[in-house]
Design a protein around this nucleic acid. Structure first.
Ligand code: MN
Ligand code: MN
Ligand code: MN
Ligand code: MN
Lengths: 228, 228
DNA sequence: AAAATTAGTTAGGTTAGCCTAACTTTTATA
DNA sequence: TATAAAAGTTAGGCTAACCTAACTAATTTT
């Protein structure tokens, strides 16, 4: 069983590699910076994780997850995102409050708990930030985060998250009648000032490009999801 | 901020003293045994907790909680019991599965989380074992655990927990139409064989004394709750 | 009251996870 | 290609939470 700290390293490596850039590896300093520890500390841990066969690592080289390490990393990500969804949907936490608490909850060890939580939330596909939630088998749909700004005119999409987590933006979002899972239809894009006309709940309104690029959407029509 | 381990020691001291016996103190060996560590280990921690002014302790003497220590202990107990209630009521865990997971969840640090969870559960007074849940102010109603066996004939009471957590007993309980918060009326007590006639959901049935002493009830009529 | 038992303490040691300071290897730049 | 900068490693040290073994104090038992 991996310790909380080991889980954090595996998650960091996963996020730096698979999620962010597309190279399947990360340097010691990069990992250390991501976790807020010194390179010397990360170095110790990388050697330990290698011994446990959770990562591949050679002196002076980059690190990458083994199959076993990736499995653990994805489980942690799954727990993190399910807890965020729980906090947001059931306990009325705001977007910007969920992450910190989920950092703690993601280390609770109980397969049963997380699978029951998943069922209780009705198997959500996305967390409140619009990130994909891996399923119980560890399958993760890596959807390219698409924003409302990029959505095509005429298409109907679903809001699945936000990029900006500031209270002011979230209030603005609420005022526009938008929330997670809300259906949005793109009515038109004004060439003159780039304003986007959208239809929400049968009401048409206009939003700025700046606003639109902070709304994450999913579109059944132009979906190009891939399995990881 | 107290570490998980410190919290466990404070909770242990609380449970040994206030809850169990009625002396407000416990010995080093007793605490060590309760936590499954060696006396030498507990001794180290007691000295540390004394330094932090969370307990009173003198060499070769018994230990007791200070006001600050008791506050933390009660917060941990509150979290433990609220999480147990959540697992039981919302995630359909059985009585005997909740404790282990709650041992982990009780250390999550977020005042907001626990207060929101409390609200979400509609401020429950008892956990699935029939133990009182301290409120947000740290007030704890120490109700003497009363069983169905001791309930008076004619009284109407509410089932708040069970003593026996075995799967077989729980199934039996279910079969009798009983569950948490279920109202039970005591119809009669047969002098001949001590069988208890109870009314549940307008249906009358008989239960053995052995059965009755494993059902924890609360009775509005004969309630003698006290504040701690 | 002495002896035996139990309770509690101290000293010294381990491991995980962190650090700083000094060093080495790799990579970038002149 | 030499040199400087960046990246990575090693050595040695710290604290929290555990341990064992040896000790001392308090409490029973005889
Ligand atoms: Mn997060
Ligand atoms: Mn997220
Ligand atoms: Mn419990
Ligand atoms: Mn309980």
């Amino acid at each position: 069983m991996a310790s909380n700290t080991e889980e954090n390293y595996l998650k960091a490596l996963f996020q730096i590699t698979i999620e962010s850039g597309n190279k399947q590896e990360a340097g010691t300093n990069e990992i250390a910076a991501h976790l807020g520890v010194k390179p010397a500390t990360a170095n110790d841990m990388l050697k330990k994780l290698k011994l446990k066969k959770l990562i591949q690592y050679e002196k002076y080289g980059k690190s990458s997850l083994t199959k076993a390490g990736k499995k653990i990393a994805i489980e942690v990500v799954r727990k993190h995102r399910l807890w965020e969804t729980f906090l947001f949907q059931k306990l009325a936490f705001s977007w910007d409050e969920v992450h910190e608490v989920a950092e703690q909850l993601e280390h609770i060890q109980s397969k049963k708990l997380i699978d029951k939580l998943d069922a209780y939330l009705e198997y959500p596909a996305f967390d409140p930030h619009g990130d994909t939630i891996p399923n119980a088998k560890g399958e993760l749909n890596i959807t390219i985060k698409k924003t409302l700004l990029e959505e095509e005119v005429g298409h109907q999409c679903k809001m699945i998250g936000v990029k900006d987590n500031s209270a002011s933006f979230l209030q603005y979002v609420n005022k526009m009648g938008l929330s997670i899972n809300q259906t949005i239809r793109i009515v038109a894009r004004q060439a003159f000032d780039d304003l986007l006309e959208i239809e929400v709940n049968k009401k048409i309104s206009s939003v700025s490009p700046k606003f639109a690029e902070n709304i994450i959407v999913e579109c059944a029509i132009c979906n190009k999801a891939t399995k990881a």
